[in-house]
Design a protein around this nucleic acid. Structure first.
Lengths: 205, 205, 205, 205
DNA sequence: GACTAAGCGAGACGGTACGTCGCGTCTTAAA
DNA sequence: TTTAAGACGCGACGTACCGTCTCGCTTAGTC
């Protein structure tokens, strides 16, 4: 039944017991099932019982790891976030900014990430503990990405030296989330380009 | 305010009988209780039974008017939105923009509106019907406010003529909501001023 | 408004108000609707709201006359009982007995009476007030019928002189109700004949 | 950490699965509570919520086993029926018949059985499914008892050979139920004796 | 090569809230 | 005065999922 003795599948295998592998397999089954259900029915209709049924993992086992539905959804979110690679370098800063915006838009609009975010945003906004984790694991990474980009842009002489990275992040991501969560306005292929073009006079040195 | 509006939702009838007054009183009790609970516990923890208990209105009566929790929350949201006045004129466009940002920040951070929004944003984002109503009743009003402001700014010669009102709205409100919902960054008194100052080169003619 | 001073339709007419006629019409509508619903859905599914809807009479009006569902059902029962004629004379006592049994069987099995009885028997059995009225209006009439029949039989010399009418009633009707309510055994055309034939040695002088 | 398997908490630990035992305890708690409430308030006032409160068993658990109030009441009825022993032998058939009648009367008039029967008779009469179960579990047993008794009586030479057991059952039980449900006539100690005495000429060989 | 212990499945359970049904009361307005 | 219309408080319904618990079974790694 269990074949791969030599876990070369990327599953973390510490010096500890071989139980780890079993744990990891269960983990994957749960997260995958959760992600699927999230995609199919939305966050509001996600149920632990459903996840248990879909994943073949006992409800008890799920509760052994995630204290609540939110915990579970958060785990899925973080699981997905980990897959998001950092921004690549581009020829000039403006292209990097457009790329950052477009990648974010695509992430929200085409992957499950968007669906999960829609379902979790209220929780993140309202639950301080969840908010803390979200900031540590997501917001701060994004801010770090933008900071690095801004630093490079300044040293390249393309961006004004007094630019505040946090404000830049707000101005790049805020419009995306506002449209995505509230206004519902479409974000087509040219959105990133237009946004950055609009902002360029404010950012340029 | 509790006068029946253009009759598009919670106030399904007219036929002005004496029952209307009773209806109206019940309506207020329900909406007030819902708003309070929404602010206290968030949408996820809002329960119709809780609303019934808090408002003194029977659960059945609530269900007679609102088919679901979403319906109820929506009614509260619209009830609150009606209280938000449009933006006032100011000496120059930049002041008007700062005022608009500051007013929005204050609305979100000091009134119940912010808590309600935190609780409802996931629902608005996920439920198409709710989204539609929210856009019709809130987003479009905000856009109209900004459009008027932009028009004035252009005719005053302060704003560039090709400015897109929707983009302006995104850039003014997006950062606020991003901070409010996700990043958790504080928005102090100078926030509006700094935001508008940053954006000025992009907006100015 | 149609006022008929000369109410000669059997409707009770006191001070000669036309209201009486209106009352009577309402009464009939309610009782008819109740009987129909009783037959269709059984007592357990009888609802005052249903009666109001079916009869076109306001719920309030029904409550003005019948304090409870039982009251209403009882009224229907009595209304039907009044339609049941007393037993006719026959050539000999045995034929009269067979006739009495057969008529009762037919009444229960083919008319609405049976369905109403099935629905009401629990209420009659459990509610002392209803039981009292049922006995006064139904049981006692049946006993009187049987008593008269027994008296005649004795004076004809066909029945033993010490026959207890109540016991006779029990032995004639008990089997019918037992089958009808509980055992579910069929009662075909020959049932009355067989029952009376079986009992004849016990009853004969 | 391993505590002795021998139950030290007062809970008996038998060979069976622990779940079974728990189930059984829950079952008893529910049936007992139901029977008590039935006795105290009658069938009409029996509520599943009441049973849950009285028994300490969660409402959901009750619904996991009994689909409806009737199901529950039926279970109580069958639970009681199982306790009713079959008729004992007596010196002669007539005594056995009297005993059968008297035992039935006592069962109906002094135990909870009567109360439950009063409450359920309408349901049994009206609901085909319930009727089927009732016949399988109760009526048929009673008929079997009487059949055996009649067989013995015939072979003893006390009863006529052509006696129909079903008719005998009707004549013995019908009067009891008729009085119990409808006529309300008392059934004192001598009732069985009088009934059998009346019927003797019809039954005797 | 049995022993130990962790991970797990199974599922009964107490509990909260759901959204619904029907009750019986009350108020108003029309006939 | 009687009725129709209908809002309302209320109690219970039967359901969905929650999160907890106890029970054995399986599966390593250890003695």
């Amino acid at each position: 039944m269990n074949i791969s003795k030599a876990g070369d599948d990327g599953t973390p295998r510490s010096a500890g017991s071989g139980h780890d592998e079993r744990r990891a397999r269960t983990q994957r089954a749960v997260l995958d099932a959760t992600r699927e259900l999230l995609a199919e029915n939305g966050f509001g209709n996600l149920t632990v019982e459903g996840v248990a049924a879909r994943s073949g993992v006992a409800k008890t086992t799920i509760y052994r790891r995630y204290r609540s539905k939110n915990d579970l959804a958060l785990a899925v979110l973080l699981d997905m976030v980990d897959e998001v690679s950092t921004q690549p370098y581009a020829a000039d800063t403006w292209s990097e900014l457009v790329s950052l915006v477009d990648r974010t838009v695509e992430l929200m609009c085409t992957s499950l990430m968007g669906l999960v975010m829609k379902g979790l945003v209220s929780e993140v906004a309202a639950d301080p503990e969840l908010a803390r984790v979200y900031r540590d694991r997501v917001v701060s990474h994004r801010l770090a990405d933008v900071s690095a980009l801004v630093e490079r842009g300044i040293s390249r002489g393309e961006l004004r030296a007094d630019l505040d990275s946090e404000m830049v992040t707000d101005l790049l991501l805020g419009p995306i989330y506002y449209r995505f969560f509230l206004s519902g306005a479409a974000m087509d292929d040219g959105f990133g380009q237009r946004l950055v073009t609009t902002l360029r006079p404010s950012f340029a040195s």
